[in-house]
Design a protein around this nucleic acid. Structure first.
Length: 195
DNA sequence: GGTAGGATAAGCT
DNA sequence: GCTTATCCTACCA
């Protein structure tokens, strides 16, 4: 099931380059011995201090966004809307705030645990959204600043290369809404929204 | 099928 | 006090 984790060097590139390359790889977590995993089918890039929609805009480093400024290959997990967690892969270089938000997975492994945590009827909705997949994979703030090649969380191969990658504007933001930085696997039924 | 409103808390002005 | 990288439910068509 679990392949080799991607090397940290994979993440040491621009977020908009890493983002589409992540499609098709598997995100896997281990929580109290239970493994859950899903194939990445939707991502968004947050490209740097010049990106008005990104938490690192203007290079303002705070306690909340500190992991975003960390080294490539870090996991950046933040809390939002008073009840939701979202998960990112930190990219580029240490000290430069950029990351790829994981927006949707195709559930692969640990479906029973996912259904229990999510409490939804349809498997299509288990991981179809950044906060939904965190709930399904039990990702919370304790995962912040983990390495993405570790035992608690990893991104692994082998990659199932998408036949086609589609691009569009990012979701849930109010600035730079026309930047084409959302990437998805064309036609996947597990997207958070159609492109 | 679609959309409006509420939940709920940290961070910023 | 307002915004937020969201999701769920209720309601209307």
């Amino acid at each position: 099931m679990s392949g080799e984790p991607l090397p940290r060097s994979f993440y040491a590139r621009d977020a908009q380059t890493v983002a589409p390359d992540l499609l098709g790889y598997v995100l896997e977590t281990r929580s109290r011995g239970r493994v859950t995993a899903g194939r990445i089918v939707e991502v968004e890039a947050y490209v740097g201090p010049h990106d008005p929609a990104a938490h690192g805009f203007g290079n303002r480093r705070t306690q909340r966004n500190d992991a975003l400024f960390g080294p490539p290959g870090f996991f950046y997990v933040y809390f939002t809307y008073g009840m939701h967690w979202c998960a990112n892969a930190v990219t580029r270089s240490d000290g430069f705030p950029s990351a790829v938000l994981i927006r949707a997975l195709e559930p692969l492994d640990g479906l029973a645990a996912m259904r229990r945590r999510r409490g939804v009827q349809s498997d299509r909705l288990l991981c179809a959204g950044p906060a939904r997949l965190c709930q399904a994979l039990a990702i919370t703030g304790t995962y912040n600043k983990e390495w993405l090649d570790g035992d608690r969380v990893r991104v692994t191969g082998p990659r199932v290369s998408p036949d086609e990658i589609v691009v569009g504007p990012r979701i849930g933001i109010s600035k730079a809404t026309d930047w084409p930085l959302r990437f998805g696997v064309s036609g996947s039924p597990f997207l958070s929204r159609a492109f």
